[in-house]
């Protein structure tokens, strides 16, 4: 160090640096500040010993406290599950009628169902449960297999056309295009189906399609297209179409029907979660209180 210059006014030495005549004072750090700095170093070292810190070849030191953020999450999940235990027990014990009479329990079940829905169901039904072509919209008031708590629950429990479940919901629309009806006949039947829901149609063709419908379709779809829930026969006289309601879509469905599959959730999800899912789906706006006659 060269000669130390002292500032006349403050008596403090300068650093020797100068900017346009302004000199920087070399004000000493307070000693306690220095000790605080040393303290933070000691703290950091101690911290790296008691908490995971030092990288090793395949992992890192685990720290004397044995802390891990993964372990913390597991603990918090266990705590949350513990806190929910009482509510879930109540859901398990109650039937749907009792749950819907208890607003707080209903809300708990609905929220639990919403969470489970986001994990298990949105892949097909969409995050807003609005479905898509071939995947039913769960918000509306049209149900293939029924929209009461119990009917939704059964669908969830056993699935639809699910090979792994003996009690699964099952229906199979025949492929009328495989020699049962000619393309002309299929076209006429489609015109008749269009007429059932009040859509624009060719009246002449529809008249030709009426007897074909009566002969082939009534047993599952009903005389006026009102559907038959027991066999999963879709309603044809409304505004909601699983595979599309235009002429082409109807023709395609009659010729070679698509048969959607939903897995059975019984055994994959626990009973309480399935119950919660039923309540959530019911609460989306289309839930039915009474079986339609």
């Amino acid at each position: 160090m060269s000669k130390i210059e002292r500032d006349d006014i403050s008596g403090t030495s300068t650093t020797g640096h100068e900017w346009d005549g302004i000199k920087e004072l070399n004000t000493p750090l307070p000693r306690w500040w220095l000790w605080t700095f040393y303290g933070t170093i000691v703290w950091a070292l101690a911290y790296s010993v008691v908490y995971p810190a030092w990288p090793l070849v395949n992992s890192a030191t685990s720290g004397l406290f044995g802390y891990s953020s993964r372990g913390e999450v597991a603990k918090e999940i266990a705590e949350a599950a513990g806190a929910q235990g009482e509510w879930r027990d109540r859901i398990k014990a109650a039937d749907f009628g009792q749950i819907s009479q208890d607003p707080k329990l209903f809300e708990f079940a609905r929220a639990g169902g919403a969470a489970a829905f986001k994990v298990n169901c949105i892949q097909c039904h969409g995050s807003g449960a609005a479905g898509g072509k071939g995947y039913p919209n769960l918000n509306d008031d049209d149900w293939l297999w029924g929209g009461t708590f119990e009917e939704i629950h059964t669908t969830l429990q056993n699935g639809v056309r699910f090979a792994g479940d003996n009690e699964t919901r099952f229906s199979q629309m025949p492929a009328f295009g495989d020699g049962m009806l000619s393309p002309d006949e299929i076209s006429s039947t489609a015109e008749y189906v269009l007429s059932l829901s009040g859509q624009p149609h060719d009246a002449e063709a529809a008249a030709k399609g009426a007897p074909l419908y009566a002969a082939n379709c009534v047993s599952c779809h009903g005389e006026r297209g009102e559907g038959v829930r027991d066999v999963g026969g879709a309603r044809l006289n409304d505004a909601i179409w699983l595979y599309g309601g235009g002429k082409e879509s109807i023709v395609a469905q009659i010729t070679r029907p698509r048969q959607g599959v939903m897995p059975a959730w019984g055994g994959r999800l626990d009973d309480v979660t399935i119950k919660e899912l039923a309540i959530y789906v019911y609460s989306l706006g289309g839930g039915e209180t009474l079986q339609r006659q």
């Binding site: 969409g126 995050s127 449960a129 609005a130 509306d140 309603r235 409304d238 505004a239 909601i240």
Partner: peptide, 12 residues
């Protein structure tokens, strides 16, 4: 509700 924005009911 933004998802779905609207729902078509069976009566249209």
């Amino acid at each position: 509700d933004r998802n779905p924005l609207f729902v078509t009911l069976s009566d249209g």
